[in-house]
Structure formats: structure tokens, C-alpha cells
């Protein structure tokens, strides 16, 4: 088991390395001198010289990468250019907010998507299935930023029930406040992902319902609800676990748009601010951090899958 986890992690290593190289190199790909980007346009030659020396930019490229990677591995991405705070501190501040939003969005997505998938898969091509498929298409097709705007218009501008700008309120400290602030962004993301969940699970269920073992189960005289509950669902949920994990992973770093709509203080918003300010150490740190989380959850999902699927051994 542990060996399996280690092997999966080791498989991701080249991806991580290549990606980190790309992230490190991006500063050097910026048009104009990287130092210019770092010290600002009005710097004196002395300042530039000092920065070059301080950053070690006169050393060979590979050495520079190595030292950057070395520091990054220790959690040191340097100081943010905007406010001279350590990048790591800035990122760590945002993680709880991002987690709270990502997890609640997945919960909303499951709550909406799973019943939709079940209802439509049990009567495929019936009227309910058609309606619910329409719902999935809508959930997927409506851009999250437009849906967010519509929700703000309705609940904040018209009804004035909820704030139009969502702050991060830890659910442990103030559940009601957390609900008021997280509801709209979580709903926005959740509706989107419910479309993915519903479509995927419906397809998986329909695929399993066609399988021979379903006919076998029926031929044993099992109740239809046991055929579905004990046989079909179990098989369909296996690949579904992967999708749920992947989507949650992508929310934790990738909810950039939703966070921007609601000006929610998560990791994605931090990244946007960093890009706006051309704050390269912060950009590198954010992307690296999101990458690690994303890959970490991927590995976790694989391990979970191997654990619940008896066909996979860890050998």
C-alpha cells in the first residue's frame, strides 16, 4: 500500500520537475530584462546591479534554477514585490478560504448532480431524463462569471439578502456569517460542477446498466432497488470518485473566476492580484502551490480508487 503511494508519487515527479522548470523560467521569458520587471522601470543602474548580484542572476542558468528549486522545496519563494512579505505567508493565509469554498462547492455539486444522474439514468430517454439532461447542459454551458453576476443581481441587488462581495468567514468561528458569505460563490461553482457530475454519473450508470452482471442479478430475483443499489451503483461510483476528486482539486486552485466575481479572498484571487502587479515571486509561489495541491489530490484519488476497487492490487 505504502509502496503503491510512493510509486504514484514518483510517477508524478517528472511532471512536477518539468512544470517547476517552466514556472521558474517564465520570469526569464518576460519581454525585457527580468530585473526590470523586479525592480521597476525607474531604477538606477546601481540598483539594477545590486539586484542582479542579490538575486545571483550573474550565475549560470542551471545553477540559478537549482538554487530556486532548493529554496522552493524548503517553502521559500522569496518576498512579494508588492508588500515585501514572504510569499509563503501570503499563500498560507489564503488556503483556509480556498478550502472552505472548494469543499462547499463540491458538496453543492454532489447534492445537485447525484440525484439528477440517478433520476435520469433510471428512465433513460424519458421526459424526466430529457429535462434533466437539459439541466446538465445548462449548468455546464452557463459561464460561471455570468451565473455569479445573475445571482448577485438577484440576491444582493434586488432582494438584498446576501452581500454582493463575499468575505472569508471561517465556518468554525461564525457559521451564519460563513453561510451568508460562502453561499453564492459555492452555489455558482456547485451548479457548474453538478452538470459535470450529473453527466458523468449518468453515463457511468447507463454503461453499467447494460452490463451482463445486471441481467444476472435480475435473474436471481433481486428487487430492482437492490440491483441498482448493490450492483450498479457500486460499479458506477468507482470512476465517479475520480471525477469528484479531480473537480475538487481544480476548485482549490482554479476557482479564479468565481473568486474574482465575488472578490472572494482565495488563492485564485491572490494569483490574479499578483499577475496584475507583475509580482513574479508571488506568481511563481501561487502556481507552484496550486500545482502541488492539484497533483497531491490526484495521487490521493488514485490511491483511494485502488483501495476501493478490488480489481487493482498495489503490486
Amino acid at each position: 500500500m505504502i509502496g503503491f503511494v510512493l510509486r504514484r508519487l514518483a510517477q508524478m515527479l517528472p511532471v512536477l520537475l518539468l512544470a517547476s522548470l517552466a514556472i521558474w523560467a517564465m520570469v526569464y521569458a518576460v519581454p525585457g530584462s527580468p530585473v526590470g520587471a523586479l525592480v521597476g522601470e525607474n531604477a538606477t543602474p546601481e540598483q539594477i546591479q545590486a539586484t542582479i548580484a542579490r538575486l545571483g542572476l550573474d550565475r549560470p542558468m542551471l545553477l540559478q534554477y537549482w538554487s530556486w528549486l532548493h529554496h522552493a522545496l524548503e517553502g521559500d519563494f522569496g518576498l512579494s514585490i508588492q508588500n515585501r512579505e514572504p510569499v509563503v505567508t501570503l499563500i498560507l493565509q489564503r488556503i483556509p478560504a480556498t478550502l472552505q469554498l472548494g469543499l462547499s462547492a463540491s458538496a453543492v455539486g454532489l447534492a445537485l448532480g447525484v440525484p439528477v444522474a440517478l433520476a435520469s439514468a433510471l428512465r433513460p430517454r424519458g421526459w424526466l431524463d430529457r429535462m434533466l439532461s437539459g439541466w446538465s447542459a445548462l449548468a455546464l454551458g452557463v459561464p460561471t462569471f455570468w451565473l455569479g453576476i445573475l445571482l448577485i443581481l438577484l440576491f444582493a441587488v434586488r432582494l438584498r439578502w446576501l452581500p454582493s462581495v463575499s468575505a472569508y468567514v471561517p465556518v468554525m468561528d461564525d457559521p451564519a456569517g460563513a453561510l451568508r458569505n460562502t453561499l453564492l460563490p459555492a452555489l455558482t461553482l456547485g451548479v457548474y460542477v453538478s452538470g459535470i457530475f450529473a453527466r458523468f454519473l449518468r453515463a457511468a450508470l447507463l454503461g453499467e446498466l447494460r452490463a451482463d452482471y445486471v441481467r444476472t442479478a435480475r435473474s436471481k430475483g433481486l428487487r430492482e432497488r437492490d440491483v441498482i443499489g448493490r450492483h450498479v451503483l457500486r460499479n458506477a461510483l468507482l470512476p465517479f470518485v475520480t471525477i469528484v476528486g479531480l473537480m475538487t482539486a481544480s476548485f482549490i486552485g482554479g476557482a479564479v473566476v468565481t473568486e474574482a466575481v465575488f472578490t472572494y479572498p482565495g488563492l485564485g484571487r491572490l494569483l490574479i492580484q499578483a499577475i496584475d502587479a507583475r509580482d513574479y515571486p508571488l506568481i511563481q509561489g501561487c502556481i507552484m502551490c496550486i500545482l502541488v495541491i492539484y497533483i497531491g489530490i490526484n495521487v490521493l484519488v488514485d490511491v483511494l480508487y485502488a483501495y476501493i476497487d478490488p480489481r487493482i492490487d498495489y503490486g
Binding site: A211, D212, Y213, T216, A217, S219, N235, R311
Partner: peptide, 12 residues
């Protein structure tokens, strides 16, 4: 049934 590779549920 005919095909014993598919008539049994793989995860039970």
C-alpha cells in the same frame, strides 16, 4: 448465461 467474464459483478 454465456460469457462468464461479464456475468459476474466485478466488485462484489
Amino acid at each position: 448465461f454465456q460469457d462468464p467474464t461479464t456475468t459476474l459483478n466485478p466488485v462484489l
